[in-house]
């Protein structure tokens, strides 16, 4: 009896192995790993691709830009997703980048706050602690509370590099998600924060920067200055699997524009 069962088990396992291999060699799987900020756009792209390629399945780990880049380097995924450009040492390690889209970062304030326009310089001075009171930029006489993201966050990296405030931001709070930032700013009339334009809701106000209000149009024509690239990371010199290459070609083609725009960011090509 035992022998029969174990033979059966071995048979089942072997069958599983074979079918598993089949799926692998067919190249029906695309593994993605990386930026949480890119979850919206990549999710939409996967969906639209799947509608015409039902034999392809996706796995997507929204682990963060850093983890995604490491995952590509380790060969644990096909395409890495990063919401910042690659660093020199990452390119030297054998990675290459393809910009998929541009994401505008909105500067947000509480709804009670009368301030609705700031220059890039004012934003820099606010975040470095040179300007500490809203009255200095045309608001009420109260201390400015700086809300930001945690070290390593793509949004923080993007915001700080554009406003030239890297490593000198005098944050009052460092929060770990876009939602937390928006919730906190909506709770505190003195707060200022930043978040992806696509993620901002009606609970907070977006300020215009240098007189340009953040929108898809102003990001795509480049007049809105606080924006960052969404990058596809691959290993240079290493060919993608057929399925991954096909998906890559699709999302970087004009065909994908509508989907990219619909998810709130601006196509790069």
């Amino acid at each position: 009896m035992k022998k029969v069962i174990s033979t059966l088990l071995v048979g089942v396992l072997a069958a599983g192995l074979i079918t598993g291999c089949n799926a692998g060699t067919k190249g029906g799987k695309v593994a993605l790993d990386g930026s949480t900020s890119m979850e919206n756009v990549i999710g939409a792209l996967c969906e639209s691709y799947e509608s015409t390629h039902s034999d392809v399945s996706f796995t997507y780990n929204p682990t963060g830009s850093g983890s995604g880049i490491t995952a590509v380097l380790d060969g644990r995924c096909d395409i890495g997703l990063s919401s910042r450009g690659l660093k020199d040492d990452e390119i030297a390690a054998g990675l290459s980048e393809t910009v998929l889209a541009y994401d505008g970062i909105a500067v947000i304030v509480n709804q009670e706050n009368p301030v609705n326009d700031l220059t890039l310089e004012e934003i820099s001075s606010i975040y470095t602690g040179e300007i500490t009171n809203w009255s200095e930029v045309g608001g009420a006489d109260s201390e400015i509370v700086l809300i930001g993201r945690e070290a390593g966050s793509g949004t923080r990296d993007g915001f700080e590099s554009i406003t030239s405030t890297e490593e000198i931001c005098a944050y009052r709070q460092e929060l770990t998600s876009t939602g937390d930032v928006i919730a906190t700013v909506s709770q505190n009339p003195n707060a200022i924060g930043y978040a992806s334009i696509a993620a901002v809701n009606d609970n907070v106000n977006m300020v215009s920067v240098n007189g340009v209000s953040p929108s898809e149009e102003s990001v795509s024509d480049g007049t809105y200055v606080i924006q960052r690239p969404f990058v596809l990371v691959t290993r240079s010199g290493v060919a993608l699997s057929d399925a991954a290459q096909d998906f890559f070609d699709y999302i970087t083609s004009e065909e994908a524009w509508d989907v990219i725009i619909a998810s709130g960011v601006v196509p790069a090509n």
């Binding site: 949480t36 963060g64 830009s65 850093g66 945690e150 070290a151 390593g152 460092e174």
Partner: peptide, 10 residues
């Protein structure tokens, strides 16, 4: 707070 985006020595 830093684990998700960390790399290297960090």
């Amino acid at each position: 707070s830093e684990m998700s985006y960390s790399a290297g020595l960090q």
